[in-house]
Amino acid sequence: MNVVLWIFQITLMLMFMMDGVLKAFQYPIARANIPWVRDVPQGLVVFIGIIEIIAAFGLVLPIIFESLTMIAQIAASVLVILMLFNIFFHFNRKEYKDVKVSCIFLFIALFITVGRIFFN
């Protein structure tokens, strides 16, 4: 089970790191390629990107520092909360394709959160 959790953690880390860097440091590219970014203040988009980057690092930090195992739980919990907001946001905008993708990320982050409680 530990191997499965690490696979999910690394996968989520890669996804959120790429997405977070795009939102936080490449705002013009994000604005051109992500429809909802045009309707949200730049500061909020950058803030979300930074949160995604921090959480992504938190998912894999226990690989380096074995004493920080709880960091992965906290990072995954932050991503669960972020995905819940994301689902409601896209649902209100009737962007159902984005809701489906966000639900997948929500369940993976939730799986990591619960899994790390029992398999730390």
Rank of each mutant, 00 (worst) to 15 (best):
residue 23 K to I: 00
residue 8 F to A: 13
residue 81 I to Q: 04
residue 107 F to P: 07
residue 54 I to L: 07
residue 31 R to N: 15
residue 35 P to M: 08
residue 42 Q to C: 03
residue 10 I to M: 10
residue 45 V to K: 03
residue 69 T to Q: 13
residue 88 F to P: 02
residue 57 F to A: 08
residue 117 I to G: 02
residue 38 R to S: 15
residue 100 K to W: 13
residue 5 L to T: 12
residue 98 D to T: 05
residue 46 V to H: 09
residue 107 F to N: 08
residue 57 F to Q: 11
residue 15 M to P: 01
residue 9 Q to C: 10
residue 110 L to W: 09
residue 52 E to Y: 06
residue 12 L to Q: 07
residue 71 I to K: 02
residue 75 A to L: 00
residue 92 N to D: 14
residue 111 F to D: 12
residue 22 L to M: 12
residue 99 V to A: 04
residue 32 A to R: 14
residue 38 R to W: 10
residue 103 C to V: 11
residue 91 F to N: 13
residue 20 G to I: 10
residue 103 C to Q: 13
residue 104 I to Y: 11
residue 14 L to S: 07
residue 9 Q to N: 10
residue 53 I to H: 04
residue 42 Q to W: 00
residue 69 T to C: 11
residue 114 V to D: 10
residue 57 F to E: 09
residue 72 A to W: 03
residue 65 F to S: 11
residue 100 K to A: 15
residue 99 V to F: 07
residue 66 E to G: 13
residue 115 G to H: 05
residue 24 A to M: 05
residue 53 I to T: 05
residue 101 V to G: 02
residue 27 Y to M: 05
residue 4 V to L: 14
residue 99 V to L: 07
residue 19 D to L: 15
residue 51 I to R: 09
residue 113 T to G: 08
residue 112 I to V: 05
residue 74 I to K: 01
residue 82 L to S: 12
residue 36 W to V: 14
residue 116 R to S: 01
residue 57 F to W: 15
residue 16 F to R: 01
residue 92 N to V: 09
residue 29 I to T: 09
residue 56 A to Q: 01
residue 6 W to G: 03
residue 115 G to P: 00
residue 87 I to C: 07
residue 66 E to R: 14
residue 29 I to A: 10
residue 86 N to E: 08
residue 84 L to R: 06
residue 56 A to M: 00
residue 15 M to Y: 11
residue 64 I to Q: 08
residue 99 V to R: 04
residue 64 I to Y: 11
